[in-house]
């Protein structure tokens, strides 16, 4: 029994080590190949600088724990969820498989959110939420409830401009 365990343990260690080596080699060959194809690293210079800055920002967020769940103007920056009671329970249960955007762009009653949870549990491998279910439903029903908007909302966010004659 213990022999088998220690064999499995060392097997796992060897496997982990192999994976590390493979990853390291991939990284090195990736860099080498990149330099081979693009010796002066020009693709780093011509790309949009704004997105390079964004990459750095998100890396920083991941490294500094304090900023990871930062909230600004009542919004949880990492997910876009509204800051309210139950926020972290929602973040921890509702963003593993899909983006928070799938939640925040929807509006449902408590019954609607509950039906959605049941559907995810029956068909999409969502786990039993236990005591967290009430916390999540309360949060969603309070912060992502439908508004009675009427038949057609007025056009919004119009950017007015002077129309020049089109070429087509």
């Amino acid at each position: 029994m213990s022999d088998k365990h220690s064999f499995e343990k060392s097997f796992r260690e060897v496997r982990t080590m192999m994976r590390m080596i493979v990853l390291l080699f991939l990284a090195i060959s990736g860099v080498l190949l990149f330099v081979l194809f693009d010796p002066d690293l020009s693709s780093f210079q011509s790309a949009r600088p704004a997105s390079v800055v964004n990459v750095q920002d998100s890396l920083d967020q991941g490294l500094v724990d304090a900023d990871y769940d930062a909230i600004e103007n009542g919004i949880h920056l990492r997910t876009g969820f509204v800051e309210a009671e139950g926020l972290m329970t929602v973040v921890n249960n509702c963003t593993n498989c899909h983006s928070a955007k799938l939640v925040t762009q929807n509006r449902m009653t408590r019954e609607g959110w509950e039906a959605t949870i049941r559907w995810m549990q029956e068909t999409q491998k969502l786990w039993d939420l236990g005591n967290n279910e009430a916390i999540i439903l309360d949060y969603l029903a309070a912060n992502y409830a439908p508004e009675d908007t009427g038949r057609r909302a007025n056009l919004a966010d119009i950017e007015w401009y002077v129309l020049e004659e089109s070429s087509d």
């Binding site: 762009q105 509006r107 449902m108 959605t116």
Partner: peptide, 11 residues
């Protein structure tokens, strides 16, 4: 996105 009440899914 114009449905009222809202329809589930990407808006």
């Amino acid at each position: 996105s114009e449905f009222n009440p809202p329809a589930k899914g990407n808006q």
